[in-house]
Design a protein around this nucleic acid. Structure first.
Lengths: 340, 340
DNA sequence: TTGAAAGCGGTACCAC
DNA sequence: GTGGTACCGCTTTCAA
């Protein structure tokens, strides 16, 4: 049974002693240095000694001595604030780093911002950092730069001027939803936003507004918690409203599902009575009843873009602006032409 | 615009020089040592110099000198393999660590296992480690112990004898689903498992089998990808089967939703024609049409248990066995008594 | 082919 | 109150 060690961990000196060689030799062997001329016999003895002692190199010491980073990539993004599509992209990124032999770490702290956050990340002396622009400001960037971070990408809905930006516009999510519904013939749409919209949700709403104005369709806005109560009242109101909208654009698929659900409780059906389109291609959206039309972009592609950009920055190339893949409509059953 | 630094990062020596004091004094001031009698003037000069230089302490160096860990908690669990409820618990754990001032990091690598994985984690010299038993075997545990890890918890469906275990039995997920359906009066249930069940899914199925046997209800098993095709054929078969089951227990909510969807396509409705119960209380399950009955446990409670256990282990207390909160049924609309 | 020794950036003990 | 200094574990010349 595991029980914490009281004596100190074996060091390379212990290995050297056990193998009857010097610490330098141990270092050579264990790191498999290209032009280290160590005899096969010595090498073997060192390896064996290391195995026997259960030796594990100390990253801190190695980093200190060699100057190499403790972590390959530090991801300091809360994901939750940027919609499910971005969250998927981050997961994909992490998954791909291991294939590339980059040891990526994800920071649990998602609250700290500004210079303080910069310090938090810089302390680890990572080679690369991915952060959200909302938390990584100019000061934080400077801290990271001074700490020797080689590559930094901040992401947000717009570009920043102090660091390479990955722009993930949220407006098109709202815009494309409205565009899609308008194209189907809907002239009165209601936009369903979260009760307390985060930055991403606010942008999506703004995008919907812009597009609605542009296309000359009427857009009402309702804020609702995903929880049923609010939505039920709201749907019920719709039921008896002669001038009710014919379509709903929801800020995300969760809201869209909840809306459809509330509609059903009020005796309204999608898409027969109202069309509904969501966002983020929630797992399950494709199997929802009705199958949910949604707006998303290719998360894997974004992961690839990021990985590529980091590779380029590491190679010394300068990166300024990265763009998320264009959002696209996944038209399924929940949106259709309005009933006449 | 961010551009990597060429000169080296400022060190505490630079700060000392700038402030006209010694490195020792800088260390005292920056760490706000309790009984360090540093004059207010000196303290101020040091702080100012640090700010001006954009100084960030080097965790590696600090860890090396003080012996303290580089990371407070290292989470090395893929989450994906343990069902959505466990994934939620991990997220909750990470969220709570920051409140407790523990700097937790999550490892991106989810593939490495055994001693090799142990090395991977131990290199960071974390204070505590949370790993899945499938990847952290006896050897890995020993490596971690030797590396000075103070607290280790491995989690899996059963306890292991080499380390403190968090047991998260998956069988009750299947068992309780069957029990619920049987209690409603269903005597012929079909269990819907993923096409390629992971360890958790396999356990859930086994649990369903056990309980079915115990209660004397018939349990058929169907493996299906969540994708529609297989399910559609399957549902269609059900449609014209005089001896068709009257209920479905799905391995997870995603599958349950897909099943209901496929059923609907085949002209069958839940719960009127078949009852359905899922698992993991998927966000959206409550708003599904019909609202999905599901099996889950309190993820926040599990996070609390873990945090508490880590605290105890850090305090030197010995922890052997931790148990996940009991699974519970969330009865909603999708499951009901069979039609006569 | 191997060993000796000088750091890397901090911490902490012990003088002054 | 403040500075000197011996480590922490490892890498990396440079000699032997």
């Amino acid at each position: 049974m595991f029980t914490p060690q009281v004596v100190k961990a074996p060091t390379s000196a212990d290995v050297a002693l056990a193998a009857g060689v010097s610490r330098a030799t141990v270092s050579f062997v264990l790191n498999d240095k290209p032009n280290s001329r160590v005899s096969d016999d010595t090498r073997h003895r060192v390896l064996e000694a290391a195995r026997l002692l259960g030796y594990t190199p100390n990253t801190a010491a190695r980093s200190l001595a060699s100057g190499e980073a403790v972590a390959g990539l530090l991801v300091a993004s809360s994901a939750a604030d940027h919609g499910a599509t971005v969250a998927r992209a981050l997961d994909a990124l992490l998954a791909r780093t291991v294939d590339d032999g980059i040891d990526a770490l994800r920071h649990a702290d998602t609250a700290t911002t500004g210079a303080e956050a910069g310090q938090l990340w810089a302390k680890l002396r990572p080679e690369a950092v991915l952060a959200e622009s909302a938390r990584c400001d100019g000061e934080a960037t400077e801290v990271l730069r001074l700490a020797g971070v080689r590559a930094l990408i901040v992401h947000g809905t717009t570009a920043v001027d102090y660091a390479p930006s990955l722009v993930i516009p949220q407006r098109p999510f709202g815009g494309l939803a409205v565009e899609h519904l308008a194209a189907l013939g809907h002239e009165h749409i209601v936009y369903l936003a979260p009760a307390t919209p985060g930055p991403a949700a606010a942008e999506r709403l703004a995008g919907a507004r812009e597009t609605a104005e542009l296309l000359g369709v009427r857009l009402d806005v309702t804020h609702a918690a995903a929880s049923a109560r609010t939505l039920r009242d709201w749907a019920h109101g719709l039921r008896y409203d002669a001038h009710a909208p014919t379509a709903i654009a929801a800020s995300d698929d969760g809201l869209a599902m909840a809306a459809i659900r509330a509609l059903a409780d009020a005796g309204l059906r999608a898409p027969a009575d109202l069309s509904v389109v969501g966002a983020d291609d929630h797992p399950g959206a494709a199997d929802f009843l009705p199958r949910l039309s949604t707006i998303t972009f290719d998360a894997d592609a974004l992961a690839g873009t990021l990985l590529d950009a980091f590779a380029r920055m590491r190679a010394g190339e300068r990166v300024e602006l990265l763009e998320a893949p264009p959002v696209r409509l996944v038209a399924r059953e929940s949106s259709a032409a309005p009933a006449r």
